[in-house]
Write a protein that binds this DNA or RNA. Structure first.
Lengths: 121, 121
DNA sequence: CAGAATCCGACATGATACTG
DNA sequence: CAGTATCATGTCGGATTCTG
């Protein structure tokens, strides 16, 4: 088993596992990762692709991911002003381990739903 | 690419991916999973193993994981009263896909930390 | 176009005290 | 032992408005 004690009593800034998990614990990050998997996108494109996200929240998420080295932000001087976001090598590496979780979710949602219904009864 | 539109505009109750990710978005669930990976544990054991978690929060987490079929709760009539928690087959299946993420975190934390320092400058 | 500023509400967690 | 009950708080996301 992993050394659990090494993961406890630490905040997200210092605990490796929590630091990484925090990149997908939000409501939108996983969608951002998937949107950027194959190609870079501009701010507005991301906003449309991801869905109902507000610009403030999108900016916040992108800044967090950029800050931790998962993606890069590139400004193309306008006008019109354009800013593109692209996954880094680390971002691509991360998506490789997180996608199985996404697929697992698709494969097992029925079971989870069944468990919920059973538990309710 | 995955069909992102299928993942948007849905709450955690109906979106497969978010429903599953919500099992590790909390501060404690991953620790609970790892603690139960090799053997079942009683409430008090879990509390000590996981660390500074309060009984209220531990109960809440365990109930959520039980409700969705990741673990089972077994009452052994006392006295003394004993309640043991054990991963289900689905729980074990899930830990298989989530552990690579944990390992990835250990392998890449240095890079994340470096990116943070660089970004700050 | 790509954000920033401000205000607000919801939910997860923490602290403390109590119980079958 | 294994929880439950209350109260307090902090962070994340949502809505709205404004700007280089």
């Amino acid at each position: 088993m992993l050394d659990i004690t090494a993961l406890t009593k630490e905040d997200a800034a210092t605990c490796p596992v929590r630091s990484v998990l925090s990149k997908v614990t939000g409501k939108w990050q996983i969608l951002i990762f998937l949107a950027l998997e194959d190609e870079s996108h501009r701010f507005g494109e991301l906003k449309r692709t991801v869905g109902d996200i507000t610009p403030r929240v999108l900016t916040e998420n992108l800044k967090s991911l950029e800050r931790d080295g998962f993606l890069t932000r590139t400004v193309h001087s306008g006008p019109p002003l354009a800013v593109s976001y692209e996954l880094t090598e680390m971002g691509h590496s991360f998506i490789k381990v997180i996608k199985p979780v996404v697929f697992w979710a698709g494969d097992n949602f029925q079971s989870i739903d069944a468990a919920r219904k059973k538990f309710a009864s």
